[in-house]
Design a protein around this nucleic acid. Structure first.
Lengths: 234, 234
DNA sequence: TTATTAATTGTCCAAAAAACACTTATTATT
DNA sequence: AATAATAAGTGTTTTTTGGACAATTAATAA
């Protein structure tokens, strides 16, 4: 086999920033590092890119190993290449972020990785440059969520308007007017009102909604405006 | 030295999507591949990541080798990892896009690479997955340009409103109303009117403008709205 | 029956965006 | 010297969108 000569070959890893929403706050799924050096420290779930594996396959594999889930929304965040980001040996990392329905996850958890959910505001000290990855992922999530209907990926199939609003509020760390929020979301025509109500979270009960799947797929990349004063988003 | 065991090490390359604007259309700077296999075919400018080089250093080095330019606007686009994207040997590529003032370039060109500018709509067949990179870069450029004052990076220090509008029109492949365009751009307060005019492109002459550097840096990440009906942008 | 809690719904006002056309400066032509 | 041609520059009106704001309703608990 022909190869390129005199060039440095480098380890390539994938790290996953896994977001979940428990109904009141945004959370991050972390694991305790299994490999030596910093073993036991909190870390993003990751792994090396395998011989015959591209990034999409690799990130899906890594996510599935931990959560058991497939078909999850994932998106490439950034490639990180600082020379000494991994003190053991130079390793380039391609970071992906994933949005999962936290309840789905709970059914399938793989306990072998000593995983834990952490509120995004109480993330423990992470190894390497993982905190930088998390920060970038949070920012990108905000950015996308401001204009694209991406946050539904964090919710179960049926959800209520108050739940949806809590989600947006926790992502943007602020409060919205519920009348305007409702009107704005309804105007996207992405929501289909159900006949049943969620009666757990209040006396009156809140109507469930589902996504209009067709419209959702069609509008996923379109520009909508989900939040007030988007001029403040970075 | 400790190393990770039994893992595949992979070549890591950087490829640069270099945009320029000649006053009427958006162009791409391409080179003729110097390495064997597909030698002489058109390609993005690229190179392997070196032993003690991170991505920012590497992309800056590669851009400088070709154009002689430093301090150019560059941004990471995406990492490409298909197993067979390079038929010689598996190579992961981190793509960066660069925006340069095409006139600056002309002064500094390195002829050794057999480079050429191509109108974005008449790009020749490219090697490997470079066309995919170009497509993604075009899309990202549009996306950013719709909300951030990024296109000034393609213009010389002094430019006119008609030039600026042509640039936006060529990026978005459409026509804008000049009254609304002017008002919108002026309202950003990023433009400082000069006393002299560009008399080459019309009888009446068009006033030159410069960027208000301070405001520009301050507003670079802020959300502005540069184009009508942004809802259509992908 | 009343109090409590949270969901639901509508109006008004302000700001932004889009549609739209005429005047001006300059040069070339007659 | 007058006129035609070209592209730059400038304002107004209308429409749409976004944001501020409060009363009503459904259900349960006291």
């Amino acid at each position: 086999m022909i190869r390129y000569h005199n060039q440095t070959r480098i380890l390539v890893a994938i790290d996953c920033i896994i977001f979940g929403f428990d109904g009141s706050e945004l959370k991050l799924l972390l694991v305790q590092r299994g490999l030596e050096y910093e073993k036991g420290k909190w870390s993003l779930m990751g792994g090396f890119v395998q011989k015959n594996e591209d990034f999409e396959k690799g990130s899906a594999r890594i996510l599935k190993e931990l959560t058991g889930l497939e078909g999850v929304y994932m998106e490439q965040l950034n490639a990180f290449g600082d020379v000494t980001r991994d003190p053991i040996e130079r390793t380039v990392s391609v970071a992906y972020f994933a949005l999962i329905d936290i309840h789905q996850y709970e059914k399938q958890i793989n306990t072998e990785f000593h995983a834990g959910w952490f509120p995004i505001k109480e993330v423990p000290k992470l190894i390497f440059d993982h905190q930088e990855m998390v920060d970038m992922a949070k920012q990108k999530l905000r950015y996308k969520a401001a204009f694209h209907p991406i946050l539904f990926e964090l919710l179960p199939e049926k959800f209520t308007l108050p739940q949806l609003q809590s989600l947006y509020e926790s992502i943007f760390d602020t409060q919205f007017d519920k009348r305007n929020f409702s009107r704005k979301l309804q105007s996207t025509k992405l929501l289909v009102k159900q006949k049943d109500k969620d009666r757990d979270s209040s006396k009156k009960g809140a109507y469930y909604y589902k996504l209009d799947k067709k419209r959702y797929e069609k509008n996923f990349h379109a520009f909508l405006n989900f939040i007030p004063n988007p001029g403040n988003i970075k």
